[in-house]
Design a protein around this nucleic acid. Structure first.
Lengths: 239, 239
DNA sequence: CGCGGTGTTGAGACCTGTCAAGACGTGTGG
DNA sequence: CCACACGTCTTGACAGGTCTCAACACCGCG
């Protein structure tokens, strides 16, 4: 069940047998979360961090008007609130997009890890920094990219991230977001998302239907997005 | 010189005498950086992280068209690329807004810190997570706030952050960004920034001139921005 | 005194949002 | 098995916030 997570780590650095054992020992229990729930609420005191084993979740921030912005999407293998380990409280909600299976990691075990496994600590530190890098790319999208480039960017990013976790088949993947949720990622309205999706289809770059993304022309899609996967830190290096 | 940095840390957790000594020993040398330079370039190999002692810097990402998005502003006391310690390479540039003084911290000293000071490690880890929280708030701004709310949000954030570092006088602070740079923060054009600034002045919320921000009505400004400082993590807690 | 960067203003264009209605699909209860 | 309800998707007409382009003012500096 935590294989996608180990794959994700091992794409970035070596994980020794001892470290793998430590990681496996971090988890205390698993939780099933139905779709469309606010799983972690902003401001709530945290005593454990949550490793997403299966399903999709998102980080969400709201305005009073009810307008919502998703700031990151999470898939199997992602820690959805590892940053909560040091922050103790989140500034955003974590919501489930689909039914999910989640593993709880008590903070005291993470404290123990920082005391006995400095290298593993640095590796997990780097994972939260990679999350920040993803958010930075989204910031660039929202600030400077057009609707179509923003959307292309997101579909490129997800292809790479899902591939790292072993969750794709060629240039195609399961994509469970409604157009409303997609709009909340992209800072658009669902109406405009609908039209932009049609535009991408018309250009024969991508096909989205039946909760599935099929990328028809990856090169062209990346050009539209000005996609450069550097920010996903796929290189294996000592951290 | 590193007092603003210590203030920033101590606003979030206790720092023992031993830890303070360790922190002071991290710095190897200082560097003067003239204004308007690309100080750290995306993709460049990093062997040290940079602590900003004085001046303003920013994280910048570009599109091919030359459009630029600033994803975070840095003031005295901020580590501008502590995340570079674990990432080894940045996905963005770090540019100087003003003349700056920077202290270099070799990564090998940070590695040693992670091996001997787990608590300090967690505290610095939390600092990179707080940077991510700031970026998340900017993402919300760019995705969902109007131009005027975005701008109000930024001025509120800077007031709080500068106050923590001891760099304000009441509701007023030095603000060295041009309208062009402000536009690059807010995902707007400089023309629209100019008009939005006039609107804020017309509403008697804020006055910006001579490189200085004077907040005339903080309550009202915060209401326009829907500003909630929770995301700046000003509580002192064990990390 | 002239230059370059920044700030200011106006007119018009365009991208995206708003509002509204209807189609489609899936799950539920009768 | 049908009827209905509800959420999502789709489409159209129109509105509006922000951008583009352009010109000019301002100001510090060499």
């Amino acid at each position: 069940m935590i294989e996608p997570h180990l794959m994700k780590l091992r794409a970035r650095d070596m994980v020794s047998a001892d470290e793998e054992k430590e990681i496996r020992g971090l988890v205390s229990h698993t939780i099933n979360v139905p779709r469309d729930r606010t799983f972690i609420r902003a401001g709530q005191d945290l005593r454990e961090s949550m490793l997403l084993l299966d399903g999709w979740m998102a980080r969400a921030k709201d305005l009073e008007s009810g307008q919502r912005q998703l700031t990151e999407l999470h898939v199997g293998g992602d820690f959805v609130d590892l940053h909560g380990f040091t922050l103790k409280v989140l500034d955003h909600d974590v919501v489930s997009i689909t039914d999910c299976v989640v593993a709880a990691v008590p903070h005291e075990r993470l404290v123990a890890m920082t005391e006995r496994f400095p290298h593993l600590t640095r590796l997990y530190w780097s994972m939260t920094n990679m999350d920040a890098a993803i958010q930075r790319e989204w910031t660039l999208s929202l600030g400077r990219r057009t609707a179509i480039a923003r959307m292309a960017q997101l579909f490129c990013e997800l292809l790479v991230r899902l591939r790292v976790a072993g969750l794709t088949s060629s240039d195609s993947y399961h994509f469970p977001l409604t157009q409303i949720e997609l709009a909340e990622c992209l800072g658009l309205t669902s109406v405009h998302v609908n039209r932009t999706l049609q535009e991408l289809r018309r250009l024969k770059l991508i096909e989205v239907r039946d909760w599935r993304v099929d990328i028809l022309d990856l090169d062209a899609l990346q050009r539209v997005a000005e996609f450069d996967p550097t920010y996903l830190y796929l290189e294996k290096r000592p951290r």
